[in-house]
Amino acid sequence: MEVRTIKVFTTVDNINLHTQVVDMSMTYGQQFGPTYLDGADVTKIKPHNSHEGKTFYVLPNDDTLRVEAFEYYHTTDPSFLGRYMSALNHTKKWKYPQVNGLTSIKWADNNCYLATALLTLQQIELKFNPPALQDAYYRARAGEAANFCALILAYCNKTVGELGDVRETMSYLFQHANLDSCKRVLNVVCKTCGQQQTTLKGVEAVMYMGTLSYEQFKKGVQIPCTCGKQATKYLVQQESPFVMMSAPPAQYELKHGTFTCASEYTGNYQCGHYKHITSKETLYCIDGALLTKSSEYKGPITDVFYKENSYTTTIK
C-alpha cells in the first residue's frame, strides 16, 4: 500500500517557510505537534488534498525554529505562539472599519479597549522592536488589523473576551517599542525636605499616572512627601515624541487643539466601556464603527496623549 502524501510549508514567522512532505494517514499533531492554519487549530486533523502548498504555523520545537521565533517575536515564552494563534482565530472574524481616516474595530468580545489602543497607536510616533509587531502594525494602518490585535493580546497575556485596560495595554506595548531616546527629568520640591531631581528613561519617561493635564504637570502637581507634608512635583525636561497622561476616570474637559487623542471610560472596574476622542479640525468621538463630532467635550476621561518633541522648564 502506497503512502499518500502532500507537500506543505511549516513556519513560526510566515517569513521562513520549511518544506514538509506530510503523510495523509496521520494527523498534523502526530507529525508536527500543535499546528495552526489561519489561526485555526488543526492539530487533530489529517492532511487533505486542499492543504497542498498551504502554510501551517507550528510551535518552535527545534533550534532553527526557536531562533526564527525569537528573532521575529522577541520572546522565548513557549506558550506565546499558541496564544497568538488562538487569538487570531477570533480577531480574523472582527470587522476593521476605516473611521475618520483611522483603522478602528467594530465592537465584539469586549474589544473596546483594543480599538482605543489601536486608534491611539496610529496617532503617536512609535516604532516597535519585534519585527512581528512592526509588520502587523503597518498592515493594521492599511486596514488589516487582525494579526496586530492578536499579537497585542498575546504580548499582554490576554484572551479574547476578557476586559482590558488601555493604560495597561499601552504599557505592555511600550515595553516592546523603541523608547531608548526618551528621557524625563522631574523635580520634587518640599518646604521641609528641599528639592530632589529624578531622571527617568524609556517607558517611565512617557507615562504618568495622577493627572490628565500635561500643562498642569509642567506647572506642578501636589504629591505627598515622605515627611508627610505636601510637596510639588513638576516637569523639568521632556525628550520624547509623545507623552501619555493618565488618571482614574473623572469628568474632564478636553479643549480642541490642546491634545492629540484621549480615552474615555464609562462604567466601573468590573464592567465598563471605552471610547476614543481625537482632536482634528474639530473633536471626534470614535466608538467602534461609530463616529460623532463636537466642538467641545466633557466626560469621564482616563488617558490623554500629547505630541511632544523637546521641553525644558522655565521655572527657576
Rank of each mutant, 00 (worst) to 15 (best):
T64L: 12
A262G: 09
S181H: 15
A136K: 03
K127L: 09
G194P: 06
F148K: 02
I105R: 06
T258R: 07
H74I: 03
L235F: 06
Q196F: 12
K183S: 06
K280P: 02
C182M: 03
Q175F: 02
E168H: 05
K7Q: 15
Y311M: 09
G101V: 02
V8A: 12
Q134L: 07
D63C: 09
Y113K: 06
K219C: 09
T91Y: 02
Y28T: 05
Q230N: 12
Q197T: 15
T169A: 09
N110F: 06
A231P: 02
R167M: 03
N61Q: 09
Y284D: 07
G29V: 06
V3S: 13
Y265K: 06
Q251D: 15
G202K: 08
Y297E: 04
K316N: 15
G143T: 05
H51R: 04
V21H: 14
A146D: 08
L126K: 10
A205G: 03
Q175R: 11
K275F: 08
G220M: 01
L102I: 06
N178P: 02
V185Y: 03
V206A: 02
N49Y: 11
M26S: 15
K191C: 10
Y28K: 09
E125P: 12
Y72R: 11
I315T: 15
I15W: 11
I15L: 06
K93E: 13
D287S: 00
Q20M: 10
K280L: 15
E215P: 02
S263G: 01
Y72G: 05
I315D: 15
E204R: 11
K255R: 10
N187G: 08
A247L: 03
N309R: 11
K93I: 00
N100I: 11
E162K: 06
G220Y: 02
D180W: 04
G272V: 01
A140N: 08
D13I: 00
Y36N: 04
L153E: 00
A115P: 02
T5G: 12
K201A: 06
L235G: 00
F56L: 12
V21N: 12
K229N: 15
F9S: 13
S246I: 02
G267F: 04
S294Q: 14
Y252H: 10
N157V: 01
I124D: 01
E264M: 04
F128N: 02
Y214P: 05
V188P: 01
L37I: 12
K158F: 03
K183F: 09
N16P: 09
E2A: 11
A154V: 02
T226Q: 14
V12D: 09
A262E: 02
C182T: 00
Q123G: 04
L254D: 01
G202P: 02
Y72P: 05
M207T: 11
T64Y: 12
Q122N: 04
C285P: 07
C112R: 06
Y252W: 11
Y284W: 15
